[in-house]
C-alpha cells in the first residue's frame, strides 16, 4: 500500500485548503477553515486546540471516514477518498470488545477484515501486548483490566495492522494524571522502536510538549492553524534527564497557553 517514496522526511500527510461544514438541525457549523499543513513521514505531530475546534474532524478525514467539504487530504501523495490500509486509529475511549480477551481484541482488525487469523498472527499479537507492557495479560477480558491497561490494548490493536500512520484522538484524556504521563513515555518508547507517523490530538499543553516533535495549534471553531512550531526539546524528555529542558518547557508552555487563552476569550 505504501508508495515507493518511503524515505523518512517525505511528506506523509498533506492538508490542502481543508474545510469542513456540518449541516445540523440547528444550522450550519463551520468546523474547519482553510487548514494547510504537511506532516513529514515518521514525525510525531500533536494537534493542540480547545474542545470543539474540529481536531477530531481532522483525524477522521485522514482516516477517510469523513470527506472534506472543500480542499483535500493527501496521504503519501494520494487523495484520501476512502479508508486506507496503512492507517491505525486509537480512540479517546479504549472501546474494546467486552467479550474478547486482550489478545482477541488485538487480532480483531485482521479477523474483522479477512475472517482469518493464523498462528503467526497470534504470535505477533502477543509480542505487541508485551511491547505495550501487557505481557501475561493476554487472556484477560477488558473488564479485568484497568483503564490504562485497556488503552494499551487499544494501542496494540491499532499497531497490529502495521500502519504507517497512527492517528490518536485524545487517547489518554480519560486516564488519571499519573497513568497519563506513564502512557506518554511508553508511547514514545514504542514509537522510537517502531517509527510511525503519529498525529496525536490533545488539549493538554504538557502532553503535547512531552510527546511531540511538532505542535500544531488550532483556534476555536472554525478551526484554523494559528501556530505551527517544532518542539526544540531533546529526547528523552522524561525523568531526571528532562531537567535541562525545564526552562524551555516553561517558556514554551507559557507561549502555547497564551495562544489558547487569547483565542478562547
Amino acid at each position: 500500500m505504501t508508495p515507493a517514496n518511503d524515505r523518512p522526511g517525505d511528506p506523509a500527510i498533506v492538508f490542502d485548503g481543508l474545510g469542513q461544514v456540518f449541516h445540523t438541525r440547528s444550522g450550519r457549523t463551520h468546523a474547519l477553515d482553510h487548514v494547510d499543513f504537511t506532516v513529514a513521514r515518521h514525525q510525531f505531530v500533536a494537534v493542540l486546540g480547545p474542545s470543539g475546534c474540529g481536531k477530531s474532524t481532522l483525524l477522521r478525514m485522514i482516516a477517510g471516514l469523513l470527506q472534506p467539504t472543500s480542499g483535500e487530504v493527501r496521504v503519501f501523495g494520494l487523495k484520501v477518498a476512502e479508508p486506507r490500509d496503512d492507517v491505525g486509529i486509537v480512540f479517546q475511549k479504549p472501546t474494546l470488545l467486552p467479550w474478547a480477551s486482550a489478545e482477541d481484541n488485538v487480532v480483531f482488525p485482521l479477523r474483522h477484515k479477512t475472517g482469518r487469523v493464523d498462528a503467526a498472527d497470534w504470535e505477533r499479537a502477543r509480542a505487541l501486548l508485551t511491547t505495550v507492557g501487557l505481557g501475561g495479560f493476554e487472556e484477560r477480558l477488558p473488564a479485568e483490566l484497568s483503564g490504562g491497561m485497556q488503552q494499551r490494548v487499544g494501542i496494540a490493536r491499532a499497531l497490529f495492522m502495521e500502519p504507517d500512520i497512527l492517528l490518536m484522538d485524545e487517547p489518554f484524556s480519560a486516564l488519571d494524571a499519573l497513568t497519563r504521563e506513564e502512557m506518554g513515555f511508553e508511547l514514545v518508547r514504542v514509537w522510537e522502536a517502531q517509527p510511525k507517523t503519529v498525529v496525536f490530538i490533545t488539549h493538554s499543553i504538557s502532553e503535547a510538549l512531552l510527546l511531540a516533535d511538532r505542535i500544531v495549534v488550532m483556534s476555536p471553531r472554525p478551526g484554523r492553524v494559528i501556530e505551527d512550531l517544532i518542539v526544540p526539546l531533546s529526547r528523552p524528555r522524561a525523568g531526571e534527564t528532562g531537567f535541562q529542558n525545564a526552562g524551555k518547557i516553561h517558556e514554551l508552555s507559557g507561549h502555547l497557553r497564551s495562544l489558547l487563552v487569547q483565542r478562547a476569550a
Binding site: 477522521r60 482516516a63 477517510g64 471516514l65 476512502e82 479508508p83 492507517v87 486509529i89 480512540f91 479517546q92 475511549k93 472501546t95 470488545l97 467479550w99 480483531f108 482488525p109 479477523r111 474483522h112 477484515k113 475472517g115 495492522m161
Partner: peptide
C-alpha cells in the same frame, strides 16, 4: 459504540461482519 463502527469502516470490512462480530455480540 460508534468508535467500533468507525473501526469497522476504516478496515473496509464486509458489512455482514459488522453485524456478526460487533453489533450482534
Amino acid at each position: 459504540p460508534p468508535e467500533l463502527i468507525e473501526l469497522s469502516r476504516s478496515l473496509r470490512a464486509p458489512a455482514i461482519r459488522e453485524i456478526t462480530q460487533i453489533r450482534l455480540p
